[in-house]
Design a protein around this nucleic acid. Structure first.
Lengths: 264, 264
DNA sequence: ACCTGAACACCGTTCAAGT
DNA sequence: ACCTGAACACCGTTCAAGT
């Protein structure tokens, strides 16, 4: 089981700081680039995208980089720390997204829309990584998945407060926004995954479960085609619009809306 | 490292079917009960609750049950399958919750409230298991976490359709309800976990991260006390009320509400 | 019928040794 | 300075052997 030589891609993103002091055994640009933490984490993201999280071991990642597993420990203290780095790197991709920024004059709703769509693109680009983004314990309780970084929390709060939200409303909006993104996107990627997934199941794995007594669930059977539709994109838009609308009410009225407010 | 003998609890729930044919080496009721899949899965839930998911190995679970790891394989085909069983068992606790049922005459809102609170109780009772509930690939794409069982999907859809929802609206409500529960509860348990968690970190692990350049996040610093408040319970109620209100509009108008509907 | 001992292939991780 | 070989303690899992 030697590694497949399917890597003729010249996309290794170096060009940051000291440009590789000449190495005796592996001159730069000839194939194997120098090891560093960034490159290892990048390779781990690629690996998880391609093979799934369960397949990522230190030994296999080492082989993927043309090196023994032990060499990785000079740059990464443990596998757990590596996974933290993977989560951070994937979320950091958002910094480079030109569509995610506060457009002056377009208001906070526009910004929250851009941010939400940016996170969604990342979730869909790395479906095998997203469960990690969702479940790794955050550094502080108020750095919530999926945004997971002080920079985005800061940016979010500033945008709302500058738009007239009071502090309590801004914080509560941040919490509601996180919950919405996390719930929707985790379900969307898991739904996508289950369609293609399951390693190599020899026959219908649902048959066993379902065939047991599908007759007990007549409504599910009757609505199966409706249930099987993938309306993720539209539902994302609708739930996001609804959340923004709710926040608009909070902003106008200076408090959280109570049920039944808009009647009589 | 021998196992702690801290189990004097007589709560092993047997009494289901054939009542243990007498065994030569371990007579029933004298201490070690007979092994079976249900008991193994129950022990696994206990173990994860107490020690965390990462600590659960087949060998340690065997020791916890007074048996070698290899003995488990007669009842459980693999660790992965055991984890599936754990998720199923935890969700099945909902069947036994007397507060979770359709109260005749109280309407679908009351039922969805009871169901949501029942799921929340389970998530809070098993915070270490809930991430598993959230991320294990479902059997079918439309059996969504956290409800994960045909029985609850059936029950949910029937309640709404009997209340006058059309099929599309009922299915779309089921999806929105799942997203809400998953996002909110996953964040709530992870928030709870991070407060007590982190195995045995010798010193403030956030210090390292934060002290780096906290000055770049003045708003986060200024609002830290607000951000640190745990308003999970109130936010759960509010988001749930809001969702129900939204569904009420769908029911009354026979379609999904569009943004700006209730102005002029 | 049910459990165990021994074994296999594989982990994460450490560290002295090589270059 | 950077990587490797060998080793340690531990995995999940199989299976012939014990009782």
């Amino acid at each position: 089981m030697d590694e497949p030589r399917a890597d003729a891609d010249p996309d290794s993103p170096e060009g940051r700081g000291g440009a590789a002091a000449v190495m005796p055994a592996a001159p730069p640009g000839s194939g194997r680039a120098a090891l560093d933490r960034r490159r290892i984490i990048g390779a781990a993201v690629e690996f998880i995208d391609a093979q799934g999280l369960a397949a990522l071991t230190m030994r296999r990642l080492g082989a993927h980089l043309g090196v023994e597993a032990m060499a990785l420990y000079r740059y990464v203290p443990s596998r757990e720390n590596l996974l933290d780095g993977v989560v951070e790197a994937v979320i950091d991709e958002l910094y480079g997204d030109p569509d995610v920024h506060l457009e002056p004059g377009h208001g906070w709703q526009d910004y929250l829309q851009r941010l939400a769509h940016g996170v969604r693109r990342i979730a869909l680009a790395h479906p095998e990584v997203f469960p990690l983004v969702a479940t790794r314990p955050p550094a502080a309780p108020w750095v919530r998945p999926p945004l997971r970084s002080l920079r985005w929390v800061e940016s979010f709060l500033v945008a709302l407060i500058d738009s007239g939200f009071n502090q309590e409303a801004a914080v509560s909006a941040y919490r509601a926004y996180s919950s919405f993104l996390l719930g929707h996107l985790l379900l969307e990627v898991s739904q996508k995954g289950v369609a293609v997934n399951a390693e190599d199941q020899p026959e219908g794995v649902e048959e066993a479960q379902e065939a047991a007594d599908l007759s007990q669930y007549p409504t599910v059977v009757r609505l199966e085609s409706l249930l099987s539709l993938d309306e993720s994109a539209a539902e994302f838009e609708e739930a996001l619009e609804n959340l923004l609308e709710r926040l608009e009410v909070v902003l106008r009225e200076g408090r959280a809306p109570r049920r039944g407010d808009h009647r009589d």
